[in-house]
Structure formats: C-alpha cells, structure tokens
Design a protein around this nucleic acid. Structure first.
Length: 422
RNA sequence: AGAGAGGUGGCCGAGUGGCUUAAGGCGCACGCUUGGAAAGCGUGUAUACAGCAAUGUAUCGAGGGUUCGAAUCCCUUCCUCUCUACCA
C-alpha cells in the first residue's frame, strides 16, 4: 500500500509512474487527497471536542471531591452535546479513513523507472542468457513421459488421494526432490541467510501484510472454519515475522531462507501449458527474504539475482533473466526479475524464480520500520525471491540431462542424492 | 475440548471509578563524581495521527458498552499459563 504522505507530496510522479502499468490513477489520487483533507478537518474538530470533554471531566471530578454537587451538575449538563457531536465526528472520521483505504488497496506499487512499458510477458526484457541450449537425442521425451518411464512422479495416485495438481513423488523422484531442497537451503545458509521453518497456514492479517489479501483472495486455499489460509509462498509467513516490528538499524540486513510447500488454487489458469510438473496446486519452494535499509534495497536485489544465477550455474541449467514489464509486474512489486530455465524437450522457458523489490509497499501494510540514531521510525524495504521453485527445476533437469540409457544427476546434487544416474 | 487463573511501557511489576500526567524496580542513554572503573547522585527513555510550533488526541491484548470521568465496571473476542481429557 502506498503511503498517504507520499501521495500528498508526489501525486503527479506516482500517476506518471503507474502509466508503466498501463494504469491511469490520476482521479483516484485526487479523490484520496480530497478525502485526506476531510479526514484531517474532521480529526481536528473531534479532538477539540474531546479535549474540552476531558477538561470538563476533570473539573467535575474536583468539584465532587469538594462536595460541590450543584456546580458539578451544571458542568455535567454541558457535556451532552459535546459527547454527541464528538461521537458523530468519530463515525465520519472512521468512514473517511475506510474510504481512503478502499482506494489505496486498489493502487499497485509504483514501478521503478527502469521498468519497461508493456502489456504481457511477451514484452519482458531479456537481460541475460547463459550458455548453449542442449541438443537432445532423437528419442528425447518431455518430463511427463520420463517420470512415467522411470516411475518418479505419479499424478494418477495424487488424483486418487487428493485431486489434480497434487502429485506423489516416488523413489528416486522423491530423493531428487529432497536433494534439491537441501542443496538450495545449504547454498542460502552459506550466503548468510538464517533458516526458518514457518507455519503453512496464516491468518488474514498476514495475508494483508504481504498483499495477497484482499486482491488475491480466490487464489489461496481458505479454511473457513478457522479463517486461515494455506500459504501460496513462504514469503507470506516469513515476511510477516516482521509485521508490527521496529528494528534497530544495526539489525540490517535481515536475511531469511525457508523451505515450504506452497498451495495455489490456480483458479482459471488451466490450459495447454500446464502439463506435468509445469503448474501444480501444491509444490515445494525454497524462498529467500530480506529486510533492508531503503538505501540498500537495489544492491540487495542484484545480490539476490546473483545468488539465484549461481544456483542455476551449479545445476548446469540453461537459463535467462527477464526484467518484467509494467503489465506483467506483480501488484506489490517495484521491480522484478524472473529467472527462466530452458526445458529442452518441451522447448520452453519455464519461470523458476521471481525476485522482487517491494520497497516500502509491503512494509507500509506490515508496519515494518527501523529506527536510526536520533530519527523517527522509518519504513524498511522488503524483498524476496524463489531460490528456487522445485517442480520446474526437476522437469528441466530430467529433460535436459536425459540420454538414451538414463538421466544424469547434476554433479552438485550427487552428494545429496547418493546416486548419479536415474 | 472442560475447569480455573491471567494479559499493564524494552523487561519485571503496582494499580478495583477521579491528585495515574501509569507508582516502584531493572535495563539502556547522557551528565556529575573518579587516576580509571564500580557504586552513588541527577536527567532522560513508546507509537500513531493532527499542528509551523506550544501542544492536543488516541493507545494498559483487540473490539463494543456503562459513566461527566474507565487500566479499573459490563459484554464479545483473541491469546497465555495451570489442572483434567485427548493426542504425535
């Protein structure tokens, strides 16, 4: 959520910036500013009444203690209208604040100036591409055939137990999956991230804090009985560790890594590109999260991109880095880099990581601030990225490393799997 | 899940309707003192919103209510602890 003070000060710049998302928010911003003026007027009037009431109450207290009941009753009579007036103003104030928030909830983050204009992922800017695309042998198969042939993942079994999109990993498939999780965690820990194992269900406050609510309500599994949401990403519980927190500047940078399963309803997004492991309702992901000083957040973003690049290099996967255009940028993000691996048999680039700087957009909702010597608390910057999402990595490893006799396990994973071929 | 006890500042802890502007202590910061330190003494020590400022308003888990006045009384709700039940 954008800060009200920022809207007051840089209305035109914000409106200009959001054009990159193909949005025209000029009218909404004007409305917010008008409502904000009303809010301040109302607050001033209300507080004047309350101050007067407080003074009267003290006088009445004093008079009662001196036994001057008559005089006290005279003052008492004066409180009635003030009370009524102030409570009416309180209602108006509340309604005005609600109206402001209702608009603010619909306005996404302002893109960084380097974000390209564009409508869809077609317009994302490829800023880096490594290595050669692998040449597969003539009988090479897509991963959904490979996992059947080698009995690595069973979708039908998942359908029986749960439903579509909930696969069962088996044997070497399960071990490769676990190897990847441990590899990713170890790499992050070596890079200075502290590991956390967060809850997989979160309350509505947490959903609001990171911005999944209210706009992505339908994308999360919801337990109505206890009003809890299954996490769509570890970003939600990990970032919410810092909700309502005032950090000391010396605590920066905060670096957390967590492995969790992720749950997504993916309502309305089922189509031809969702075969096999490409899109699931439940999948595993290792997530890195940082909370940093505002001056450092773009350096941090670069570091996080470098970290994920390094993972892909070590796994010997062909990949590229895309800078998301305004039309593809997530609601809460100011700048996002997507990492895509090439899945050779599908001949497709698959998104395996999305690394974003949210600047103060999440911190404002989270009330996540830091304090520096002699200054008032300021909003911190939050960032996160997948490092990495598992199923598509698995898919591309299987496809890219297949030979006519089997599938080679990337060298860095062998100590984790205990086998080098499938 | 049932019964009981609780939730007060960074922490501990007093406070059952009005000199509470939340006592007292600990911690922390600064100053005095000292050869240096400790002790001692003094001063300070939350957040948000409004205001140029002085200052005002709100916040004692959260939300309502009673009252001229609520940390204190009432209702709702969340959480913690103890015991019982259940359970990995």
């Amino acid at each position: 959520m954008l800060e009200l003070s920022r809207i007051r000060e840089e209305k035109d710049a914000i409106a200009e910036g959001l054009k990159t998302r193909n949005l025209d928010v000029k009218n909404q911003l004007e409305e917010v500013i008008a409502l904000d003026e009303k809010r301040r007027d109302t607050q001033q009037q209300m507080e004047k009444d309350l101050a007067e009431l407080n003074t009267l109450a003290k006088s009445i207290g004093g008079l009662f203690q001196q036994g001057k009941v008559e005089e006290a009753n005279v003052l008492k009579a004066k409180t009635g209208t003030l009370k009524e007036q102030s409570s009416q103003l309180k209602t108006v104030l509340q309604e005005t604040e609600d109206a402001i928030n209702k608009i603010l909830f619909t306005i996404p983050n302002v893109p960084n100036p380097i974000v390209p204009k564009g409508n869809s992922d077609q317009d994302n800017e490829i800023i880096f591409e490594n290595g050669q695309l692998p040449q597969l042998h003539a009988k090479a198969l897509p991963h959904w055939d490979l996992i059947k042939q080698y009995d690595l993942v069973d979708f039908e079994l998942g359908v029986k137990i749960t439903g579509a999109g909930f696969p069962v990993y088996k044997g070497k498939g399960a071990r490769l999956q676990r190897a990847l999780i441990n590899f990713f965690l170890d790499e992050a820990i070596n890079a200075g991230y502290e590991e956390v194992i967060p809850p997989l269900l979160v309350n509505a406050d947490s959903g609001f804090g990171t911005g999944q609510l209210p706009d992505k309500d339908g994308q999360m599994y919801h337990d109505a009985q206890d009003n809890l949401y299954l996490i769509p990403t570890a970003e939600v519980p990990i970032t919410n560790i810092y909700r309502d927190v005032i950090l000391n500047e010396s605590q920066f940078p905060i670096k957390n890594v967590g492995y969790t399963p992720c749950f997504r309803r993916e309502a309305g997004s089922w189509g031809s590109d969702v075969r096999g492991l490409n899109r699931l309702h439940q999948f595993d992901k290792v997530e890195i999260v940082q909370v940093v000083h505002p001056d450092k957040s773009y350096d941090t973003l670069d570091q996080m991109v470098a970290h994920v690049k390094n993972l892909l290099e070590k796994l010997e996967l062909p990949y590229r880095v895309a800078k998301l255009c305004g039309g593809d940028l997530g609601f809460t993000s100011a700048l996002t880099f997507d990492m895509e691996v090439f899945s050779a048999a599908q001949e497709k680039w698959l998104e395996v990581s999305s690394i974003s700087n949210f600047e103060t957009f999440q911190a404002n909702r989270l009330k996540l601030r830091y304090k520096s010597e002699g200054n008032k608390p300021q909003l911190a910057h939050t960032l996160n990225g997948s490092a990495l999402a598992l199923p598509r990595i698995l898919a591309s490893i299987l496809e890219n490393n297949q030979t006519e006799t089997g599938i080679n396990v990337p060298k860095v994973l062998v100590p984790y799997t205990g086998f080098d071929t499938i």
